[in-house]
Design a protein around this nucleic acid. Structure first.
Length: 425
RNA sequence: GGAGAGUUGGCAGAGUGGUAAUGCAACGGACUCGAAAUCCGUCGAACCGGCUUAUACCGGCGCGCAGGUUCAAAUCCUGUACUCUCCUCCA
């Protein structure tokens, strides 16, 4: 969430920056008009409350002296009634102001390419040689089904579309990957955490999914519990409504969790394979830093995620998303995209974002600076990495003409020493 | 799922209708060569608003949260969250 005072004081700057994310200047003007009304009401109401407090004190004195206070009491009855009416009006306005403010996206960093589509994204760097195949490469779902390690049919029968079973070496490969990721992340300084997979609405608000993106998630009926769309939610909310001791910063977490997504609005897209599922595993990284350290932390985290792909030997490139392609909370996002031979294109496997103080302000995560003043931390998140998509990338990039798949060397210790995936019985 | 107890400032802990004791910690000062001890003072600078370049200052709010009763609520009423104990259940 943006600071309302900042919107008030630097209105032109905010308008200009948010325009690049599709927010019209009129929306800001409406917000500020409501805010002005709100403040006017506060002045009125608080003035009356001050009177009431003063007179109440006098009543108390009179009663103590056993004198009559009836006329003052009658007077205050009227005042209290008026205050109540004003406060009701005020609450309505505050809800409106809060709602409007919480629907504004973060201010993009100056280095973010401006664009209203994903077209303008900038390629930062590229790594790895794209493999030349002597045969026609198969899709990962075809490879997986032929080997008997991915079972989409039974996934659909038992759960529905966009669900699957990993079987045998497939399940083992998935487990190998996330253990590998977790181990690497720990070595890079991220503390391993195993978070809850259901969170309450307040947590969803804290990380910015709510109130705007409620239709994208799965909510339990009759309960205030939502299936997490990413471990970012429980990891960032770990410190919600807390003050982190300054000496602990930066705090770095990593966690494996399933991610549940309704994929509303993406009907027809990526209907086959591991790319777009209602449930997939992801190893997530989250960092809390002092504001002055967050940009360096973003580069560090992006580089670390890249390192994972280098170790796996999968070609990728890094792009910086445009102002409107970034997620709501981000001030800047680097996406890592891996090469998928069958699709003949790069696909996202990691998204690393600096949300600056946007999430911290929503979730009230603070620290005390050198002067003892409370400040909001900066929060960052990044995938390290999406596990299902990593499986897809390995199957497609490491496939052999006979339909088997070579296991990347770094994963072999996690696969009981196996070097190749062959057909399951 | 059932029963009971609890939730007050950084911590401990009083307070059952008249507007948040006290102790510790912290901060400022005195004493001291310096420190400790002692003494004096400040202390919910969490938040919101007014006035301000900014402080200061003034006011609101503030006793888990949300409502209600009342001229007045930490105190009374209702709902709710969380914690602990016991029972039940269970991996």
């Amino acid at each position: 969430m943006l600071d309302l005072k900042m919107i008030r004081q630097e209105t032109d700057f905010v308008k200009e920056k948010l325009a690049t994310r599709g927010i019209k200047a009129e929306e800001i003007d409406e917000l500020l008009a409501l805010d002005q009304q709100r403040r006017d009401l506060i002045v009125k109401s608080e003035g009356m409350k001050a009177t009431r407090n003063q007179v109440s004190d006098e009543i108390s004195q009179l009663k103590r002296n056993k004198e009559s206070a009836n006329d003052k009491i009658a007077e205050m009855q009227k005042v209290s009634k008026d205050i109540k009416a004003l406060d009701e009006e005020l609450v309505e306005l505050e809800v409106k102001v809060q709602d409007k403010t919480s629907r504004l996206p973060n201010i993009p960093n100056d280095n973010v390419p401006i664009g209203l589509t994903e077209e303008g994204s900038v390629e930062l760097r590229k790594w790895g040689d794209i493999r030349h195949f002597d045969f026609k490469p198969k899709s990962h779902w075809e490879i997986g089904e032929d080997l008997g390690i991915l079972d989409f049919e039974r996934g659909a029968k038992v759960s529905g579309s966009r669900f699957l079973y990993y079987v045998g070496q497939g399940a083992r490969l998935e487990r190998a990957l996330y253990n590998f990721f977790l181990d690497q992340n720990q070595e890079a300084g991220f503390k391993e955490v195993l978070p809850p997979y259901m969170v309450n609405a307040a947590s969803m608000y804290g990380t910015g999914q709510f109130p705007k993106f409620t239709e994208d998630v799965y909510k339990l009926e009759d309960e205030d519990e939502i299936l997490i769309p990413t471990a970012e939610v429980p990891l960032v909310n770990y410190y919600r409504d807390e003050v982190i001791p300054a000496e602990k910063l930066p705090v770095r977490f990593t966690a494996l969790s399933p991610a549940f997504r309704s994929e509303a609005g993406s009907a027809g897209k990526d209907t086959r394979g591991l790319i777009r599922l209602h449930q997939f595993n992801k190893v997530e990284m989250v960092q809390f830093t002092k504001p002055e350290d967050s940009w360096e932390a973003l580069e560090m985290m992006t580089n670390h995620a890249e390192e994972l792909l280098k170790l796996l030997g999968i070609p990728y490139h890094v792009i910086t998303l445009t102002t409107s392609d970034m997620s709501f909370t981000a001030a800047m996002t680097h996406d890592l995209e891996v090469w998928l031979p069958f699709q003949d294109r790069y696909r996202e496997i990691s998204s690393c974002s600096n949300t600056t103080d946007f999430q911290a302000r929503r979730a009230h995560i603070q620290y005390r600076d050198e002067n003892g003043k409370l400040q909001y931390v900066n929060a960052l998140n990044g995938s390290g990495l999406a596990v299902g998509r990593a499986v897809a990338a390995i199957l497609e990039n490491y496939q052999n003409e006979d339909g088997t798949v070579t296991i990347p060397e770094v994963l072999r210790p996690y696969m009981g020493g196996a070097e190749i995936i062959t057909k399951e019985d």
